[in-house]
Amino acid sequence: MSNAATSQFVYVTYIRTTADRLWSALTSTEFSQKYWLGARTEAEWRKGGAWRIVFPDGRLADSGEIVEFEPAKRLAIRWRNEWSPELKDEGWSLCTMEIEPAAGESVKLTVRHAIERDDSKFIGAVSGGWPQILSNLKSLLETGATILPPKYAS
């Protein structure tokens, strides 16, 4: 296998919005609460800034650092799980979100999440969450409403 030591996925979704609006959605704590299954992302939104996901009850879900920050184009996060000892033990992953123009007044969002190990349980866990987050994000930007109720609501 060409990539035996890497676990990763690449998700692509097309959203009828502008690159600037999508970028704002990806880099806003307030907005993230509306689509991140009830949790929220908090960060110093700049390259090198600390980044984290926080559950509604205040517990830390994930933590990391912004390693690439190109407004309306590219956001990359060095990302580690914090709530599960088993997943935390797998160490650092890298999540990149890339925005590109697409046909029909829409933009293409590509999310790649990778970790340098085989059969990663962490990648298994986040790969189930991302499709819902992306659906919510798309729905929110296109219609102003999310489809799924917050998963982690109290």
Binding site: N3, V10, P131, Q132, S135
Partner: peptide, 18 residues
């Protein structure tokens, strides 16, 4: 995903989820 000369294919569940 293109890695050098290789093109790696991934299942993308976003449309089925929608």
């Amino acid at each position: 995903l293109r890695l050098g000369r290789e093109k790696l294919h991934f299942i993308n569940p976003a449309p089925i989820n929608a």
